Simulated assay, not measured.
Amino acid sequence: MISANVDIVPAPFVPRMVKYLRKLLMSKKMRVTAFVQNSTNRILAVQAQEDFVDFLFSLLTIPLGKAEFILHGDTGLGSVDNLYRCIPSLNVRKSINTENHSINSLLNPTIPRNYVSVTQILPLAQKSSHMLLSKYDDFRGRHQRNLEMTDSRDMDHYELKGLKPNAYMVTDDLVVMTSSANYGVSKLQATGIPLHDIETHVLDIGMEEALNILKASLTSSFALTNGLKQSLRRRKTRKMKCSSGGETCFE
Rank of each mutant, 00 (worst) to 15 (best):
M131V: 10
H143E: 01
F139T: 13
H201I: 00
T237H: 14
K127G: 03
Q189G: 07
L228T: 02
F139M: 09
Q230C: 11
R145P: 00
S231T: 15
T171V: 01
G192V: 00
M240W: 08
P194F: 04
R142E: 12
G227T: 07
Y136L: 00
F139Q: 13
L160E: 08
I103C: 02
I205S: 09
G206Q: 07
M155L: 12
R140P: 00
L232R: 02
E148C: 04
A190F: 01
Q126T: 12
Y183M: 03
F222M: 07
K229A: 07
D156M: 07
M177C: 03
I111F: 05
D151W: 03
V202D: 12
L132H: 11
T178L: 02
L147R: 07
N226T: 08
V170K: 08
K215V: 03
D197L: 06
G192C: 00
I103G: 05
E99P: 05
M240T: 08
K164D: 13
R238F: 06
S105D: 15
Y168C: 01
S221Q: 15
I111S: 14
Y158G: 14
S134T: 07
P109L: 05
K236A: 06
I213V: 13
Y136Q: 02
F222S: 15
Q189F: 01
L214Y: 13
F139W: 11
I103V: 14
S217E: 06
L163E: 11
M169Y: 06
R238P: 02
N212M: 13
Y115F: 13
L122P: 11
T178W: 00
Q144K: 05
V202N: 12
T110N: 15
D156S: 12
V170N: 08
K239V: 07
L203P: 07
T219A: 02
L203W: 03
Y168W: 12
N100I: 04
D151Q: 10
I205K: 06
I198V: 04
Y168T: 00
N104R: 12
A223K: 04
K135S: 14
T119R: 14
D172Q: 02
S117V: 05
H101I: 10
K161H: 13
I193S: 00
K215S: 10
S221P: 06
L211N: 08
G184Q: 02
I205D: 05
N104F: 08
L132N: 09
